[in-house]
Design a binder for these strands. Structure first.
Lengths: 149, 149
DNA sequence: GCGATATAGTTGACATGGAAACTATATTCC
DNA sequence: GGAATATAGTTTCCATGTCAACTATATCGC
């Protein structure tokens, strides 16, 4: 029975490079006291209305449990605030504090830098093909952020 | 200060798709009683000489601690065997059992299927560009499997 | 040949995320 | 309006990985 090489799979290369990109970014934001997951949540709150944790969970691809804990950490760091909904006794919203809002552009610059560091050497054409193909996969397969809970 | 969109980053799309590919594969191999990490280790032992855990750690991008635990699990499942080195009192080697060896082609078929499921719709050209670009990044940046311990 | 150091592997403490149980509040339908 | 059910969020338990300490053995430099 033929056992194809790991490196024959596009998924293998995707994961390999993706892991490196994420790890490098994690090291960059670490200096600012946040993790990658925290960055993504902060980024999502940036310039948005106060947002329900469940909505963030959907869009982040995390379970509500995970967002609950993530929010705890960001709360403890003073980067977000939690507010009870007035209309619904169960619901809450999360929003950036001034400190959180000030941090986002700094982290965004690191994200830009990190992306450039890995992909700047590609031709514009390559970047377009990759982005286009990946977008198409997401589109066609209707990929939503992963866990559905 | 400009805060670029997350989706402006190639790294974002890579991670997004990569996570989905891995998750889908995880669900497939789950039926065979193994995890993705276990599959990669089994694949690495397939058709190879008995191999030292530390060597596997290097190539898998895991710490030795992680490989130690991973090997424990595979041992418990009867898919690999551990042998003490004769020449070096510290060293061990891992190798597939017949059961492990028999499982690899089955898992490999699932891997092929999974990759096809996600990427078959891309044109040959797109696949070539993506694989080429990612390989080039790995090459140029000298990316080795990640954790160095 | 032996003390200092390096290396192989294991282990324990910690972090983070998923799954599912749980609490509290809302909604639906009779 | 009240029981059944749905929904928001939290919490607990488990899996799996890192990091750093630890044990045992090898090797190096003198």
């Amino acid at each position: 029975m033929p056992v194809s090489d790991l490196s024959a799979h596009l998924g293998y290369w995707l994961r390999f490079v993706s892991n490196h990109v994420s790890l490098a970014f994690a090291r960059k934001v670490e200096g600012r006291g946040v993790t990658v997951a925290e960055w993504v949540l902060l980024r999502m709150l940036h310039g948005a209305e106060p947002t329900a944790p469940s909505r963030l969970a959907d869009r982040l691809g995390l379970t509500r449990g995970a967002v609950s804990k993530l929010a705890d950490r960001l709360l403890a760091k003073g980067l977000i605030v939690r507010a009870a909904s007035e209309s619904d006794g169960r619901a809450h919203t999360l929003a950036l504090t001034p400190e959180g809002a000030a941090l986002v552009p700094v982290l965004a610059a690191l994200a830009d830098e990190n992306d450039a560091e890995f992909f700047a050497d590609l031709t514009a054409d390559e970047r377009a093909v990759i982005a286009g193909a990946l977008r198409r996969i997401v589109e066609k397969r209707g990929l939503r952020a992963v866990p559905v809970d």
